[in-house]
Amino acid sequence: MPRKTVCELRDVTFVYPGGAAGGSGCASPALRNVTLSIYEGEWVALLGSNGSGKSTLAKHLNALLVPSQGDCLVYGLSTRDEKNVFPIRSTVAMVFQNPENQIVGTVVEEDAAFGPENQGVPPDEIVQRVEVALAVAGLLEKRKKPTYTLSGGEKQRLAVAGALAMDTPCLVLDEPTAMLDPAGRAELLRVLRNLHASGKTIVSITHRLEEILSCDRAIILHRGEIAWEGTVSALFLSDLPFKEWGLDIPPLVSFWRDLRAEGRSVPPVPTVAAMADALCQ
């Protein structure tokens, strides 16, 4: 059965007004001839170094940016058309890098309710949605707290809860774990795994290869172009110029690759538990 396409980029090139994309200072495009599709229910990891264009690409997926050339379609609707913007943003919710810039409410539950309020969701349903979203994000106990009392990690989870409360089929997260400690990171990844299992389409941006073990597909951006695309296991097995792309092979994956290259038995996916089992055989 053909999978339904959620977002589609057709030969998209994007140049920031004034030309300076990031720090390069020259008028080079932030995205160059990017063509890709995101399918319903899949979890795609968008990888690349700082300045590779991954945030720029993410902003195309809910019409925050429109292509300089080419087209971006969300469920077939062009992001270029002003009248499509509202339906598109009710389809694709965004979580940005810095939660400090996303919190608008003074109280946790008010902040999480901001999105559905703007969507015109009936009050009773907002209350329900907010409760579910805060529970998923592990913030239910803090629902009555002022947002300024949250720690950085909690603020980030609140930003995720705000996006979840919008109940969109697709969630785009721009480095959602950047400010979290390892436990907070693991917690957020667990939330995403559950959402993925429940059928949500997820695009998560990261430069940490260890965070993509549960993803279906990985897309690597380098200097605004798609440098590689494939399954996550293919990515770990491949001999790609990770360094050149600003990606770091996690130590555990290096160990796994090294053992594999020597013909020793290794688990299909390099997790701590699976590696321990394999090494104890």
Partner: peptide, 28 residues
């Protein structure tokens, strides 16, 4: 709580618990 051992350290600890003679280390 909230502070995880790096993966390699966790692996070395897991191997030690199972009786393997490996050092507790963060270097694979």
């Amino acid at each position: 709580p909230g502070l995880q051992l790096p993966e390699i350290a966790a692996l070395s600890a897991a191997l030690r618990e199972r009786g393997k003679d490996v050092p507790l280390t963060w270097d694979w």
